[in-house]
Design a protein around this nucleic acid. Structure first.
Lengths: 220, 220
DNA sequence: GCTATAATTTTGATAGGTCAAAATAAAAAA
DNA sequence: TTTTTTATTTTGACCTATCAAAATTATAGC
C-alpha cells in the first residue's frame, strides 16, 4: 500500500505531465511543486523508480509509467470525488475544499469512496470542473478554450478553473465566476496584458491574462 | 499539531483508563492494546510526558493529564461522529465502521466535523451506543447494566456494545442484537458460564458471560 | 572550446516510529 | 532471604521522509 507521500508524488507528477504532455518532468520543477528540496525529490523519485511506478532518466527527468499512472488516476479520483462530496453533501464552499480533500484522499477506503460516488450519482466533474477519473482509471480529455483563445463576443460558459488557490477561487466566487456561469469575452488587449469580460447584466470585469488563462470555457 | 500516532496513543489511554478508573495504565497493557512492543510504548510515553500530555511514573504506569484527556476526548469525538456519519449518511454497516473511522479521524478538519455534526443533528451516541463527547470535551457518564448484572425476567433495551471487533458485531447483528433492540435475561448460569436470552418472538439465545458482559442494557 | 552559471545528485544529519535483544528492577516463590 | 519469574526500560539498529551543503554534470555565453 503506497504511503500518502508516495500518493502525493504520483498525483503531482500526473498533473505536471498534463501541463506539458509528452515531456519529462524536471526534478527542480517537481521539487518546487512538492515544496521539498531538489535532493529530496531526487531520492524520492529513485525510490519510486525502484518500486516500478515511474521511468526515471537521471539528469533528464521523470515520467509515470503505466502502473504509476493508474495509481495517480486513482488518487485523483479520490481527491475529486471527495471535493464534490464536501460541496454537495456537507455544504462546504467550492473555493476551500481542495486542502480538505488533500488530507482525506489518503484516508478514505474504496468502500467509502464507492458510497460517496453512489450518493453523488456517479458524477463526472468535481466542483472546479475537473474531470473525475472512472473507477477503472479512465479520464475524459476535454477540449476547452481559455478566456484568451475563445471567440470574442460570443456567450461562453465556464467549464473549469485550473487553479486550486483558495484566495483566487474566492475572488472568482465574489464575481460569480464559477463553473456553470456564463460570460462573454469582450476584448483582449495583448499590450495591456488584459481581457475584458462581460458578465451578467451590464457588469464588466478586467482580468490579467495570467488569471484569464486559468478559466476554461465552452460555448454556452 | 499531534501526529496520528500521538492521537492514537492518547485515545487508547483514555479507553484503557475508563476500564479501570483511578488506576495507572501499565506499559505492557498499553503496548498490547497498541500492538507495539513494550519498548516502543515506553519511548512513546516518555515523549508524551515531555510534551506535557501524560503523567508518567516509571515502572509504575501512565495516565492522561488534563491536557491529554482533552485531546483524547477530541479524538474520540471525531471517531464517533465519523462512525455515525458513515452509518447514517453513507449507509455503511454499523459492524464495520470502526476501522474506517480509525483512518478518517486523523484526516477530518474541524470545519468538516462541524458540518457532519450539524447534518446528523448534534447526536449524543454513535452506532454502538458509545457517547459522543461534546465539542468542548465533555462526555456523559452512563450508568448501564450488563447482561450479567441486570434484573432477570424484565424487558431490557440494548444501549451499548463495548467491543469493536467486526466479526463479533456481525454475529450480534445476525441475531438482531443491536443498540435499541429489546430482550429479556431469562437465566444466568454461573457454573455453565452462560446466560440465556429471550429475544423477540419465541427466539432464545445463549451467550457466554464474556460476550454477555459486552452488551450493556437499560430498562426498556 | 573554455568558463561561468544553473540544475541535479550525493553525502551526512535529523526526526518520528518502530523492533529485537540486552539490562534492570520489581514481584512472587521457595 | 535468596532465587526465579515477570515487567519495564535501555540500547542499537532500521525505515521513511526530510534538509543543508558539497560534489557533479549540463547548458549557455563568450
Amino acid at each position: 500500500m503506497p504511503s500518502s507521500t508516495v500518493e502525493n508524488y504520483l498525483k503531482r507528477l500526473f498533473i505536471e505531465q498534463q501541463k506539458q504532455p509528452g515531456q519529462l518532468v524536471q526534478m527542480g520543477h517537481l521539487a518546487e511543486a512538492m515544496k521539498v528540496t531538489a535532493g529530496t525529490a531526487t531520492s524520492m523519485i529513485k525510490a519510486l523508480a525502484d518500486s516500478g511506478l515511474v521511468d526515471y532518466e537521471p539528469r533528464n527527468g521523470v515520467k509515470l509509467n503505466v502502473q504509476g499512472e493508474q495509481l495517480a488516476l486513482h488518487v485523483l479520483r479520490r481527491h475529486r470525488l471527495i471535493e464534490l462530496f464536501l460541496v454537495q453533501i456537507l455544504g462546504l464552499d467550492w473555493a476551500e475544499v481542495h486542502p480538505e480533500a488533500e488530507q482525506l484522499e489518503h484516508a478514505v477506503s474504496e468502500k467509502v469512496l464507492e458510497r460517496m460516488d453512489g450518493l453523488l450519482g456517479r458524477p463526472n466533474f468535481d466542483p472546479h470542473g475537473d474531470p473525475i477519473p472512472s473507477a477503472d482509471g479512465i479520464i475524459r480529455k476535454q477540449q476547452l478554450a481559455t478566456l484568451l483563445n475563445c471567440p470574442r463576443g460570443q456567450l461562453m460558459k465556464i467549464a473549469r478553473i485550473v487553479d486550486q488557490d483558495t484566495d483566487f477561487l474566492q475572488f472568482l466566487d465574489r464575481h460569480a465566476l464559477r463553473p456553470g456561469a456564463t460570460l462573454t469575452l469582450v476584448h483582449l488587449d495583448t499590450l495591456a496584458d488584459a481581457v475584458t469580460l462581460q458578465l451578467g447584466g451590464e457588469r464588466t470585469l478586467v482580468l490579467g491574462t495570467r488569471a484569464a488563462s486559468k478559466i476554461l470555457v465552452e460555448p454556452a
